[in-house]
């Protein structure tokens, strides 16, 4: 048996990891990162002369569980056409037997890298923007289940994208299998569901009871317990709430100098409540409460007292209050001087 020096072992290990792209339209350029199921590579599409990202399984699984899950992720992404969800271009099997899918290459930073330059207000607005594609996915019966700062990308043009749908759960009844007809009414948009087709996709995406999926620190209690049947869009409310807690906790970057108010803390607490029924019923509701907070309006998560309400009203109508006070002061001075 031939002895392999350290440098050869390291080289072979790298070779083992590099996807075999021979005979495909792709050419490996750079290793980008590693996710739960596989590695992501920057590759060049030789036909269209553009760079794209290739997610490839780390290793073949004889049970094919991972390959099926990767393909499901690709199918889910393909069905979720939204500016906040990375589009998928291609999927298949490489010559070395590994499953892959090809997606848009997003140049940007993950949320945890990006927020350092932002003040609290901008951070909260970012949470509202994350809620948009998430709400869209929920309307199609898809639950992300792995929301965390590392899975949120802010692109070069400031666009916010939710990445890594590898742990996504397809709800039994949803509109994921067919483009939903959008029906507007009462100021909201709801998707008309196609339960027959979505049921088929959901059947391919079963998660056994007791299976724990997610990332510690961002996982909802029902995920930690493996209560698969309890997982619904409020599980993602918890995930988004955890990101909200993270950005409120994070003290890095530019000094914000803004103390966390009780209503804001209450929003975070309501979003990450251990009891499912105590959380916001949807990510839109959470985003709406954040919007009210940003507009100095009362939020649903917190009942303010008379003093707090006065302070908020004063803050909200600062100009008017200053004008009234100035008027009253002038009036008093006028009365005083006119008496002399």
């Amino acid at each position: 048996m031939k002895f392999l020096p350290d440098q050869v072992v390291a080289r072979l290990q790298t070779e083992m990891q590099t996807p075999d792209l021979s005979g495909t339209r792709y050419r490996a350029l750079k290793f980008l990162g590693r996710g739960g199921m596989g590695a992501v590579w920057l590759v060049e599409d030789a036909v269209l002369h553009r760079n794209v990202a290739l997610k490839v399984l780390s290793a073949e699984s004889s049970s094919a569980d991972l390959a099926v899950r990767l393909m499901l992720e690709a199918i889910i992404l393909a069905r979720l056409e939204h500016p906040g969800i990375v589009p998928v271009h291609d999927a298949g099997t490489l010559p070395d037997g590994r499953s892959f899918y090809c997606m848009k290459y997003v140049e940007g930073q993950t949320l945890d890298q990006y927020i350092h330059r932002l003040g609290l207000r901008q951070r909260l607005q970012l949470i509202q923007r994350i809620a948009e594609p998430l709400a869209f996915a929920h309307s199609r019966g898809i639950i992300h289940r792995d929301l965390k700062p590392e899975n949120i990308m802010v692109g070069a043009f400031g666009e916010v994208l939710i990445m890594d749908w590898g742990l996504a759960k397809v709800m039994a009844v949803s509109s994921v299998a067919a483009p939903a007809r959008q029906v507007s009414g009462h100021g909201s948009t709801r998707a008309v569901q196609d339960s027959a087709q979505s049921g088929a996709l959901a059947a391919e995406n079963p998660t056994a009871h007791g299976t724990v999926f997610g990332t510690p620190g961002y996982m909802a209690p029902e995920q930690e317990r493996g209560d698969v049947n309890l997982i619904d869009q409020r599980t993602d409310v918890f995930g988004l709430g955890s990101i909200l807690q993270y950005i409120m906790r994070d003290k890095s970057g530019a000094p914000r100098g803004e103390a966390l108010s009780r209503p804001l803390r209450a929003i975070g607490n309501k979003a990450t409540a251990a009891e499912i029924s105590a959380r916001y019923s949807s990510v839109q509701e959470l985003a709406a409460d954040l919007g009210k907070y940003l507009d100095d309006m009362p939020v649903s998560a917190y009942r303010e007292n008379l003093f707090e309400r006065t302070v908020r009203l004063v803050n909200r109508n600062r100009v008017a209050v200053v004008l009234v006070l100035a008027y009253l002061l002038m009036r008093m001075l006028f009365i005083l001087f006119s008496r002399k």
């Binding site: 990891q17 590099t18 590693r34 290793a59």
Partner: peptide
């Protein structure tokens, strides 16, 4: 996974 998990 461990064997192939070293970043190139």
């Amino acid at each position: 996974q461990t064997l192939l998990g070293v970043d190139p």
